[in-house]
């Protein structure tokens, strides 16, 4: 996959260094949801993880910034900033490692609980909504909010819908949500201000699995529509420890 050069207006060459207290440094590459900005976040994350500076504790990539947790009694801010600049000079290798996933999703009304409501709001048919949702390729920008929950970019414009004015009751684990122009796959039952359009039998987090967390930020993902019977069969296989999402060549 060719590396897209970031628009300097959106992603300045030099990131901003913001303080989140004396134990966390935010390296901010931009303020928008943009694959080029996220590429730079993930490249820095990969470079730092490959050779973590002494005194750093944890790196948290998000859409547009990397939060570095550190112990200021072991490494001072200025030294850390210097090491970040050094890491930024290393050519990025992360994008070459991005995996392409296909994940099963059931859109039937018992699973995509809000699909009729969303279709009405968007003035399309539920069938059209499903067709558009499965046709798109999504980028996993980040995990966030709850264990295993991933935020996806690449939702088609026709499916862009604002978040709900007020939260709806808790969804099921595995619920696929849309809202605010983005798509989310959940892993825990939670109330949400987004719309539930489907549900995957896959578990993005399973503690007993060798890879407790299935995906890496930067991976690409597509949804494959399945019926209720297939959902139940796959759910059983997942319960026995199997991974039912699969990697594709492209």
């Amino acid at each position: 996959m060719p590396h897209v050069a970031a628009d300097p207006a959106i992603a300045p060459a030099v990131p901003r260094f913001l303080n989140a207290g004396e134990t966390a440094l935010v390296v901010e590459f931009g303020e928008t949801v943009d694959p080029a900005i996220n590429d730079r976040v993930l490249a820095l994350d990969a470079a730092l993880r490959a050779d973590p500076p002494a005194g750093t504790r944890e790196f948290v990539p998000t859409y547009r910034s990397l939060m570095i947790h550190y112990d200021p009694l072991q490494i001072d801010r200025q030294t850390l900033v210097g090491l970040v600049h050094k890491a930024l000079a290393v050519p990025a290798a992360r994008t070459a490692l991005a995996a392409n996933w296909i994940i099963p999703c059931c859109y039937d009304s018992g699973f995509g609980e809000d699909i009729e409501e969303v279709a009405q709001l968007l003035k399309i048919t539920p069938g059209d909504l499903i067709a558009r949702h499965t046709a798109a390729t999504y980028r996993i920008y980040m995990y966030g909010f709850a264990p295993g929950q991933i935020y996806l970019g690449g939702l088609p414009e026709a499916l862009a819908i604002s978040r709900r004015p007020a939260p709806r009751p808790p969804h099921q684990p595995g619920a696929v949500l849309i809202g605010g122009g983005l798509c989310v796959i959940t892993n825990f039952a939670m109330p949400t201000g987004w719309y539930v359009i489907g549900r995957t039998p896959e578990r993005l987090y399973a503690v007993a699995r060798a890879d407790a967390f299935l995906f890496q930020a930067g991976d690409n993902l597509r949804f494959e529509a399945i019926d209720a019977a297939t959902f139940l069969a796959l759910e059983q296989r997942v319960a026995s420890g199997e991974i039912v999402a699969r990697k594709s060549a492209a």
């Binding site: 207290g21 935010v26 998000t62 910034s65």
Partner: peptide
């Protein structure tokens, strides 16, 4: 509204 980023304890 900002595009989500990390949260430290005490933020």
């Amino acid at each position: 509204n900002i595009v989500s980023d990390g949260i430290a304890m005490g933020a």
